[in-house]
Amino acid sequence: EFSMMFKHFDKDKSGRLNHQEFKSCLRSLGYDLPMVEEGEPDPEFEAILDTVDPNRDGHVSLQEYMAFMISRE
């Protein structure tokens, strides 16, 4: 189920989600993330990124995504 969600939000089929795609994916899974303006701080989402994209390369791989989802179950 999680990998299907990942593929759905991987719009460019790159095998990874940019942070915006990842945020959309989390919202569709029921995460209550506040709407913030582009460039505004988003501490809740930043905290999630610290876990799922610790190297802050700007992308979430399928492996990082799956590890995050399994840790939340």
Rank of each mutant, 00 (worst) to 15 (best):
Y31F: 15
A47H: 09
A47V: 10
G39H: 06
C25A: 10
L26V: 05
E46G: 06
E37R: 13
L17V: 05
P54W: 02
E40S: 12
D53C: 02
H59I: 09
G30F: 02
E40I: 12
D53N: 04
C25V: 07
H19M: 04
G58P: 00
R72Y: 15
V52R: 00
S24P: 15
A67W: 06
S3A: 04
F68C: 03
F22A: 02
G58V: 00
H19N: 02
D57M: 13
H8Y: 10
K13L: 08
D42T: 05
H19C: 03
E64R: 13
P34A: 12
V36E: 11
R56K: 06
G30K: 06
H59M: 10
N18Q: 03
D12S: 15
E46M: 06
R56V: 03
M69C: 13
M35W: 11
P34Q: 09
D50Y: 00
H59R: 07
N18H: 03
P34R: 11
N18R: 06
L49D: 00
I48F: 04
E40H: 13
F2Q: 14
F45Q: 00
N18K: 08
K13R: 13
E38V: 13
N18F: 02
N18D: 15
C25F: 04
A47G: 11
P34I: 07
E37I: 08
M35N: 15
R16S: 09
S61F: 09
F68D: 02
S24A: 06
D57L: 14
V60R: 00
L62W: 12
L17D: 01
E44K: 14
K13V: 05
N55E: 11
F6S: 08
Y31K: 05
I70K: 07
V36T: 14
D32R: 12
L29S: 09
L33G: 05
D42Q: 09
E1W: 10
E46L: 03
L49C: 03
T51C: 14
L26E: 01
E40A: 13
M66S: 08
L62D: 04
I48P: 01
D53M: 01
K11P: 04
M69H: 05
I48S: 00
D50H: 05
P41A: 13
C25Q: 04
R27F: 08
T51N: 13
S24F: 08
P43M: 09
E64F: 01
S61R: 11
L62R: 10
I48L: 06
V36L: 13
Q63E: 15
V52Q: 00
N18T: 15
H59E: 13
G30L: 03
P43D: 08
P41K: 15
E1K: 15
N55H: 09
F2S: 07
P54V: 06
D50V: 02
H8R: 14
D12G: 10
S28N: 11
D42K: 01
L33K: 04
D42H: 05
M35T: 13
P34M: 08
S71G: 12
L49H: 00
E21K: 05
E46I: 01
E73C: 09
P54C: 06
G30N: 09
I70V: 12
M35R: 13
L49Q: 02
D12H: 05
P41W: 10
F68R: 02
V36G: 11
F45L: 07
D10S: 07
E64A: 15
E40F: 09
L17F: 02
D32S: 11
M69S: 05
L33I: 13
Y31D: 05
F22R: 01
T51S: 14
D50T: 04
M35F: 10
L26K: 00
S24W: 04
R56W: 03
R72D: 05
P54E: 05
G30R: 04
N55Y: 06
V60T: 01
M5L: 07
Y65C: 09
L26I: 09
E21G: 10
L26M: 08
E40M: 14
H19E: 02
V60I: 13
R72A: 15
L62E: 15
D57I: 15
L26A: 01
N55V: 07
L33M: 09
E40D: 13
D42L: 04
R56P: 00
E46F: 01
L29A: 09
Y31A: 07
G58K: 02
E40Q: 14
I48A: 03
E38Q: 13
H59N: 08
E46Q: 09
E1H: 02
G39W: 08
I48C: 04
L33W: 08
M4Y: 06
M35C: 14
Y31V: 14
M35S: 15
D10N: 05
D57V: 15
G30D: 08
G58L: 00
L17M: 05
M4V: 10
E73W: 00
S28A: 15
T51A: 13
A67D: 14
P43G: 08
R16G: 04
D50N: 12
F22W: 02
R27Q: 14
H19T: 04
V52D: 01
M5V: 10
D42R: 01
T51I: 13
D32E: 14
I48E: 00
C25G: 00
M35G: 12
P41H: 14
A47Y: 08
R27H: 11
D32K: 14
L33P: 06
A67E: 13
E38G: 11
S28K: 15
R72N: 12
H19A: 02
E21D: 07
L17G: 02
R72K: 08
K23N: 04
C25W: 03
G39A: 08
S3Y: 06
F45D: 01
G58N: 03
D50S: 06
P34L: 08
Y65Q: 02
R27D: 06
A47D: 11
S61M: 08
D42V: 04
D42W: 02
A67G: 11
Y31P: 02
P54M: 05
I48W: 02
T51F: 10
Q63D: 15
N18M: 03
M4L: 14
F68K: 05
V60K: 01
K13H: 10
E44Y: 09
V52H: 02
R56Y: 01
D50R: 06
L29R: 03
G39D: 12
M66T: 12
M69I: 08
E64C: 08
S28P: 01
D53V: 01
L62F: 15
E40L: 10
E44N: 11
